[in-house]
Structures are given as C-alpha cells and as structure tokens.
C-alpha cells in the first residue's frame, strides 16, 4: 500500500484526501455524493446498522483511511 497520496488535491489550499481526489471529476463526484448522501439520509435501514457495516467493510478491506 502506498504511504503517500497518489492523487493530488483538485481543490486549491486543501490537502489531498478522498474528497479532493474525487474533485478531479466533478460530475462523477456529484453523482457519487447524491447516491451516498441519499443512502445515509433516507431508506429502510437505521444509521447504526449502516455504520456498523461501513466500519466492518473498512476492516475487511484493511482500509485505514
């Protein structure tokens, strides 16, 4: 795994991050934000269930971010 960011920040003045990397593709980033935001703000599952599965998925994929 890389120890340094491979993609620069597309937002001047902000450090490289998941969000600033996606910002290189504003259209895709916007579509992702709509989907992900709706998943969290609405739907059939409670927030606890969503957060537990999110954290477990991050563990399984060994994603320290």
């Amino acid at each position: 795994m890389s120890t340094k960011p491979r993609v620069s920040s597309a937002i001047p003045g902000e450090a490289p991050s998941f969000g600033t990397a996606l910002a290189h593709q504003p259209g895709l980033a916007g579509a992702f934000g709509m989907l992900y935001g709706t998943f969290w703000s609405k739907g059939a599952l409670d927030h606890r269930t969503k957060e537990v599965t999110r954290m477990r998925n991050a563990r399984v994929t060994d994603c320290g971010y």
Partner: peptide
C-alpha cells in the same frame, strides 16, 4: 426495490 437509490445509482454509473 429501492427506486430512489436505483435512480441515483444509474445516474452515477451512467455518467461514467
């Protein structure tokens, strides 16, 4: 079965 998520998923995937 989740129409709102389906529409947003299609929009995301299709935009690619």
């Amino acid at each position: 079965l989740r129409p709102e998520l389906r529409e947003l998923y299609a929009a995301f995937y299709g935009k690619l």
